[in-house]
């Protein structure tokens, strides 16, 4: 799981271009999701699983596909650029 996490970040951000006469205060960082399914390709065999009870709650049997989401603008950003 940790190895998978090191291989990719599930959220990215960038700072949108600011014009001279933009009417609103800047949003700062703009976020977007890059969930695990973008990186894995065809699922390899013998990946780590959640217990059946956990899997039913989380929405996936496979730990590698689990991607918790929360409003990134609330947290104010611990994401990586790129």
């Amino acid at each position: 799981m940790d190895q998978q996490r090191e291989r990719f970040t599930p959220i990215k951000s960038y700072v949108p271009f600011r014009g001279l006469f933009d009417p609103c205060p800047p949003i700062g960082e703009k976020y977007y999701s890059t969930p695990p399914n973008l990186y894995l390709g065809f699922q390899p065999p013998n990946l780590e699983q959640f217990t059946p009870q956990e899997a039913l709650r989380k929405g996936t049997l496979w730990k590698v596909f689990y991607d918790y989401y929360d409003n990134p603008y609330k947290r104010g950003g611990d994401s990586s650029h790129g």
């Binding site: 969930p35 894995l40 991607d67």
Partner: peptide
């Protein structure tokens, strides 16, 4: 809603595998 979002991720994965 987080559960439903997770299902979208898994479905996308399976469709990508179907293409493969």
């Amino acid at each position: 809603l987080r559960y439903l979002r997770e299902r979208e991720i898994v479905h996308s994965q399976r469709f990508r595998e179907a293409v493969e």
